[in-house]
Structures are given as structure tokens and as C-alpha cells.
Design a protein around this nucleic acid. Structure first.
Lengths: 212, 212
DNA sequence: TTGTAAAGTGAGTAATCACTCACTCATGAC
DNA sequence: GTCATGAGTGAGTGATTACTCACTTTACAA
């Protein structure tokens, strides 16, 4: 059992230990934070929406900020870590011979992840400018691990001659901008489009732009 | 005198009518909103930072939200409109023979704009999820006008055979993602890099990716 | 059945919130 | 000099805030 799986299962166990009221508090907080923002949401409102006394919230979460971190933290710890590692292994185990295949898998993979965590991701993006802890957690769990592993992936395809010889960080910036722009267009602007055609054109654009 | 210039001068006139105290309030509000967010900033704090009685704020701004709009609205009305129109005229007047030249001008132009309005842009991006008025204003002033004009620009270069024949909105999405990604990397992650080299690689990437 | 620890409650608290209002002050027209 | 007007003030408003605490209920092992 890997360390990652261990942590993951530990968390799920904890989740199963949650009472109904605790679950209701987390659900209500997630919805209110996403809708009105952390600072503009009162603990009173959360309690009412959760069908719970206000005191119950503070029985389980020392402060309101504690509740925010409890909603957002699992996003990074539970989801991003393991997925990243699987991605890397698939590349190095040569499940993906071409960068193009890797991109396709990425886009499908992230799409699933986004759809299952839309609200929490929204809260995370909205609150990250105001909470040093969130920034720290993001750098710790996502920044360091992910960046280093993706540099390896890019170098792997550069050696194979599929990607132009520019700094891997630049390749990552260009790829990430394009993919994030794709998702932003879809989820933020709520555009109706021919999804498969857009994905194809996006990946074609990336491959042509990054070609040696 | 164009309608845009008229509005612009009218605003500057009004700006000159502002008293010192009013200016201090706007400066203090801008800094506090950017730092702590709108909902987490109290009018008391703003008044103290501006060296003004709390009542003075409400003499000039009916509500706290009114103050927010007074800080953010000019950003869209005064700045984005005129610049966009100049861009378009330069293209259609054939100041830019190639899409590449247009991109260079855009990147330089936007960089100036960003640097001069960092804090207000930050406030705008932070608060737009929570204020319908901001979203409406953005669609009104930026969305409609800008998108339509940029579609014309893209079609212009497509006819010249410089850009692949895909939907103009897709070209705009890919271009905007790449440029916004460039600025985000610079200003959000505060990366130290060889700026000119990164700009060159970014534009080269765009040109290769969008080539017919 | 009983003992106990955790879960849940809701009235209560001091602090803070956005906003008001009766007032003073400064400026300039007559 | 006087009067009108708008800028500026700061104590005061009721509402709301995050959080506490003494208490009750629930779950379950002994």
C-alpha cells in the first residue's frame, strides 16, 4: 500500500465517521461559500441551511476559518496528488507514445475532476487571494510535486523529438494556459459549442505550436 | 469629438472636482479592497486609513457597494473602450501587416495597462463572482464591443491567409488564453524570467499554432 | 440498566457592522 | 457682513457578527 493510498483511505474512513449533521454543515458551507463568498457568509446562515444549531458548527470547527479549510483542503490533498502520480506513471510506462495522447488523457481526466468538484474549486479560486494558509497548502501539495513531475514528462517528450527544445517550464506554461483557457471558456462563460471539435482544435493548436 | 472622448473628458473633469478627502477615500478603499476583499473590509477601516470621519464616506457614496462600484467602474468605461477602438483602427488602417505585429503591439499595450491598474484589476477579478452589476457592466462595455471587433480583426488576417480557417471565436480563445497565461505567470506567480525571450517564444508558439 | 463520552443545543455575549443625523466649518456670491 | 451651500464630523443607532457555555440528548459498552 503506497503512502498516497494510505492517506486517501484514512480520509475516507474519517468521512464515514462523520455524523449526518456534520455532513450537512459541510454541504451547506460549501454551497454558501461558493455562492456568496467566505467573508459574506455568516455562521448563522450556514447553521440554518444545514438544519443545525449554530453551536453545533463550533463543536466541530474551532473557527469559521477552520470550516473553510475543512471544505477546501481535501481538494488538494485527496484529489490532485494521486492523479498526478498516475499521470506520470502512465507516461513513463509508455502508455502514451506521443504528447498528443497524453494531452487527450489530461483533458478528459481534468474534465471529470472539474465536474465532480466545481463548487469547491470555485471556493478555492475565490478565497486563495485572501488566505495565506491556502496559498501555502497549494504550493506544498500541488506546486512543488506537480511542477517537478511535469518537467520530467516534458523532457521525456523533448528527448523523443516531439516537442521543441525550449525550457520545460515554458512548455508547461503554454500548455497549461491553453488547457485552462479551454476549461475557463466552458465553465466560466458557459459557452455552448461543439465540444469534441473544440478539443480537437485545441490539441492540434498545441501540437503545431510546440512542434520542433 | 467622439462619444468615447466625450465621456472620458467628462470623467476627468469630475475627477478634478474631487476634494482631497474624496481622493483619499478612493485610494484607501482601493488598497483595502485589493488586500482584504470587499466583504472583509469595514467602512471604519477605510475611514481611518483615509484620515477621514466615517460619515464622510457616506456623504459621497450612498452605500459601501456604491464605493466599490466607484472604484471599479472607471476601469471598464474609461480604459478598455478607447484602447480597443484604437487597436482595431490600427489593424484596418494596415499599420500591422501581419498578425505577429498585432500580437506584439497587444502584449506591450496590455502590459502598460495592467501595470498602471494592477490593484483595481485585482479587485475587479476578486469581486466579479459576487456582484451581478459588475458582470453586467463587463458584458456591456467589454464583452459585446470587444468580441465583435476582434472577430473582424481575426477575419481580416484569415482572408490574408495568415491564420488557419477555424472559427474566429476559437482563434480568440486560443490567443487570449496564451496571452492571459503569460500575464498570469508574470503577475500572479511573480516569476523571475527573461522577459523578452518569453514574449518571443510565446508569440512564436501562437504563430505556429494558428498557422494555416 | 446504568455510566459515560460525544453530539447537539440555543440563549447569551461583547464586538463590530453599515449607516444616520444633528451639527460645525469653509468657501464664495451678493 | 451675511447668507446659502456643500464638505466634513463623530457620537449614536439597531442589527448582525463569530463565538461561548451550561445544559440536554443520543449512542453504546459494561
Amino acid at each position: 500500500m503506497t503512502e498516497q493510498n494510505h492517506l486517501l483511505e484514512e480520509m475516507l474512513q474519517e468521512d464515514e465517521k462523520l455524523t449526518d449533521k456534520q455532513r450537512q454543515i459541510l454541504i451547506a458551507a460549501t454551497e454558501m461559500f461558493a455562492e456568496k463568498g467566505f467573508a459574506a457568509t455568516s455562521t448563522n446562515e450556514i447553521a440554518k441551511k444545514a438544519g443545525v444549531a449554530e453551536g453545533t458548527i463550533f463543536r466541530h470547527y474551532k473557527t469559521k476559518k477552520d470550516l473553510l479549510l475543512s471544505v477546501v483542503s481535501p481538494l488538494m490533498v485527496k484529489m490532485i496528488g494521486p492523479i498526478i502520480i498516475k499521470d506520470l506513471n502512465k507516461v513513463l510506462d509508455k502508455d502514451f507514445d506521443h504528447y498528443e495522447e497524453f494531452l487527450w488523457a489530461m483533458i478528459k481526466n481534468r474534465q471529470e475532476f472539474l465536474e465532480k468538484n466545481l463548487k469547491v474549486i470555485q471556493i478555492f479560486l475565490q478565497e486563495i487571494p485572501f488566505h495565506e494558509e491556502l496559498r501555502q497548502q497549494f504550493i506544498e501539495h500541488v506546486g512543488k510535486k506537480v511542477l517537478n513531475r511535469y518537467i520530467q514528462i516534458i523532457e521525456h517528450y523533448q528527448i523523443k523529438g516531439q516537442i521543441a527544445k525550449m525550457p520545460p517550464t515554458t512548455v508547461i506554461r503554454l500548455t497549461a494556459s491553453t488547457l485552462l483557457g479551454f476549461f475557463a471558456t466552458k465553465y466560466v462563460f458557459n459557452v455552448k459549442w461543439n465540444e469534441e471539435a473544440e478539443i480537437e482544435q485545441t490539441i492540434k493548436f498545441l501540437m503545431k505550436g510546440l512542434a520542433p
